[in-house]
Each structure stands twice: as C-alpha cells, then as structure tokens.
Amino acid sequence: MILYVLLAFAYAFLYIPIVVMMVFSFNASKLVTVWGGFSTKWYAELLTNEKVLDAAWLSLKVAVVSATIATVLGTLAAVVLVRFRRFHGRTLFAGMVTAPLVMPEVIVGLALLLLFVAMEQAIGWPAGRSMTTIVVAHGTFSLSFVTVVVRSRLDRMDASLEEAAMDLGARPLRVFLSITLPLIAPALLAGWLLAFTLSIDDVVISSFVSGPGASPLPIVIFSKVRLGISPDINALATIVVALVGVAMAIAGRVALGRR
C-alpha cells in the first residue's frame, strides 16, 4: 500500500509542474502567479508572433533533416560495430560513436563552433552560422543515440535468417536490403524519433552554432525565459506538450494495434 503512495508521489512530482503551467496559460492576468480569469488571448498573441512562428518552422526543418542524417549514419555505424568484429581503427571508431553520449553539451557546442570558425577561415565553408551548421551539429550528436538503439536491435536479431539468405546465393547488399533492413525497421523509426526529439529540444549546442539569422525555437524560448516567466511562453509550452501527448497516443495505438 505504502508503495503505491510513493508511486503516486512520483507521478505527482512529474506532472504537477506541467499541469500548473498549462492552467496558467489560460490566465487572463499578465501576472503569472495570480489568477485573473479565463482567457485564450496568449494563444492568439502567439499565433501572430512572426518571430516564434519562423523559429518553430526552422526547428522543424532542422529536426527532420538532422534526424534523417543521424539515422542513416547511425545505422551504418551500428552495422559496422555489430557485424565487422575486427578492422583497423575499430577502437577509435567505437570511441567516437559512444563519446557523444557522455560528453557535456557545452563541450560539444564549443568544439563544433570552433571547428566551423576554423573551417570558414580555411576553406570558406560554412559561411557564417546558419541552418547548415545547426543541422551538422545536431546530426553529429544524435547519431550516437541512433547507433545505441539500432545496435541493440541488431544484437538481438536472429543471424540465421541472414545466413540462410546468403546460403541461397543472395549478395550482401541484397541480404541487407531485403532481410536485415525490414527486421530492424522499428529500431530505425525509434532512433529517428529520438534524434528528432533531441534536435527539436536542444538549447545548448544550438546556442553555440546558431547565428542571428537562424534561431531555432528553443533559443527564442530560452532568451525570453532568462528574463523571467511570461504567459505566452506558458501557452507555447502547452501547445508543445499537447502535440507530444497526441503523437505519443497515436504511436502507442499503432504499437498496441500491431501486437
């Protein structure tokens, strides 16, 4: 019994702050902790705020492109680590794939920015801080997370299916495309979603590699939040939470429906 009380406490701890924020997004008063009646004016204000809408659109584009790059490269890296047991530079490769998982974000952000500055001086690319630099940075750090997800799936996969295909004369590329890929597809999807979430949520690395012309949504929110809380951020946060909730519900339905 006491166990369930403790569990309820954990859920309360996890959800009360989010619920409070959602409730206050409908507050008519500009004072964020005093209730001044129900209103949706902050939502209306938000939807006419060009800066926020532009930032949200940029974030979405960056997240889709960088998650796709991370999924392709991360999957290749996972195949290399699971299937190719011995090759020159394996230790270095394994280290480079796992290091971003434990690397503080401030270091990754600083290192990438210094690289971009050095490259721009040397070869003129990338020109300044733009969507390109954010995509490259996000693709790099989320690659490792995709590799973890795909790797565990490859590890648990039944190797005899691949062996059977090869015994029947299928070439390695064919085996990969028609046997391996369909089997690990759920892991690829999970990895892509993880990379997408990491990208669309990232503040620290984006702060280093984004410029005045290209500010993703978290940067816009962060610079506002640093000045204190404001009701339109509550509204924005509520929209984000609602979107995630709906997406998770659909994903859950699909997953349960398949079973």
């Binding site: 949520d201 809380i229 946060a237």
Partner: peptide
C-alpha cells in the same frame, strides 16, 4: 518526450 527546457521553465 516533452521539451526539457519547458519542464525546467515550469
């Protein structure tokens, strides 16, 4: 899966 920044902000 919801925004980390928003949860800190809350």
């Amino acid at each position: 899966w919801t925004s980390f920044l928003i949860r800190v902000y809350a």
